[in-house]
Amino acid sequence: MAALPRRIIKETQRLMQEPVPGISAVPDDTNARYFHVIVTGPEDSPFEGGLFKLELFLPEDYPMSAPKVRFITKIYHPNIDRLGRICLDILKDKWSPALQIRTVLLSIQALLSAPNPDDPLANDVAELWKVNESEAIRNAKEWTRRYAMDN
């Protein structure tokens, strides 16, 4: 197996030494490109109190290609689909090798604080979020309680 690029080593070290508040990202014991991520639901959001598991994978050509990130914990969010895929521009066309794992995690946290139903991935969720926001928020809270709190 190819040696781990120095950039990944440096980023990992920094994530360990100065973790992003509310986020833990730990590399897998067997694969240093695979991170187990836990994001705490931001205060004053329907996800408050929840602990959301994600997986983050650095592809072979990272940092030329964006990290692959996915929610493992089910979440009711207009920008996250049923498979946990995240609709976030910096994970797609707006990715730049100048960005880092840290930036990605911060952006995901921000997305939980401010869902954007105009930029949806989960179509039906987005629809509800637009026409009946309070019901959508109730659903999100319910899902958070059901899937993100008992572990």
Binding site: P5, R6, R7, P63, M64, P97, A98
Partner: peptide, 11 residues
Amino acid sequence: LRNIPCLACTD
């Protein structure tokens, strides 16, 4: 000459 780290690999 100014020892600027690489944008991508930071070396």
